[in-house]
Structure formats: C-alpha cells, structure tokens
Design a protein around this nucleic acid. Structure first.
Length: 108
DNA sequence: GAGTCATTCGTTG
DNA sequence: CAACGAATGACTC
C-alpha cells in the first residue's frame, strides 16, 4: 500500500477548495488559474483522488460552464445528483444541471 | 513509461 | 446551433 502522499499541487488545490465559503462555488479553471496551472484536469484529478474526502468540499467545485461537471469519478449518475443536492443544501441552487446564479461563483 | 481524468477551447457540420 | 477532436498537467499502476 502506498502512503497518502500529498503533492504540493494537491496541497494547493485542497487549500483553495477549503477556502471556498459556504453557499459559494468555484470552477476548475478558476482553481487551476489561482494555483498557477494551465490545465483544469489536474485539479479535477486531485479532487477525485481527494485524500481529504469530507475535509475538502469537492462538491463546491463545478465546471467553468456553470455545469456540475462531475463528482466521485462520474460526470453523470447518482454521484452528480448528490452533488447538486449537497450544493442546494448550502444555498446554491441548480437549474437544469446548471448553476442557477453565476454570482454564486467564488472569486479568489 | 504509458494510460487515464470530475476540463476547456477551437473548428467543423 | 450542435458535436467532435485536440491540447494540457498531474496522478496512478
């Protein structure tokens, strides 16, 4: 078994993700840009492997198109549904699979 | 070392 | 307007 080694990149991702206040969301591209990385996929990967599962609110990270994007390794299915419900409980409402208010996006 | 990924952008039909 | 492919950076096996 491998040790849960968190790379510097992941550390940044989790740090920024945890920085998101309740009732607010952010996008992969925004996170990637804030970290200093040109690819948003790397951010999603870090969240998917999320070693800090309940500690890091990965459900507060959505796609830059205001879409839910993915969750728990699936861009659709029950996982995504759960993500939407989770955000809804925090005050973030979704409409047709998209964020109802783009003003809810948290800017670093 | 190769494959995979929860994305994003650009071009083509 | 809609769909597909290519690009990019990092992680896991």
């Amino acid at each position: 078994m491998k040790k849960t080694e968190v790379t510097d990149f992941q550390k940044k991702v989790y740090r920024f993700t945890k920085r998101i206040p309740m009732g607010r969301v952010t996008t992969y591209a925004l996170l990637a840009g804030a970290i200093g990385c040109g690819s948003c996929r790397a951010v999603g990967q870090a969240l998917k492997r999320n070693p800090f599962a309940p500690r890091v609110p990965c459900h507060r990270v959505i796609s830059s198109d205001l879409t839910v994007g993915g969750f728990e390794g699936s861009s659709k299915g029950l996982s995504i549904s759960r993500k939407k419900v989770l955000l809804r409980r925090e005050g973030v409402y979704f409409r047709a699979g998209r964020l109802a208010d783009s003003d809810r996006i948290y800017r670093f």
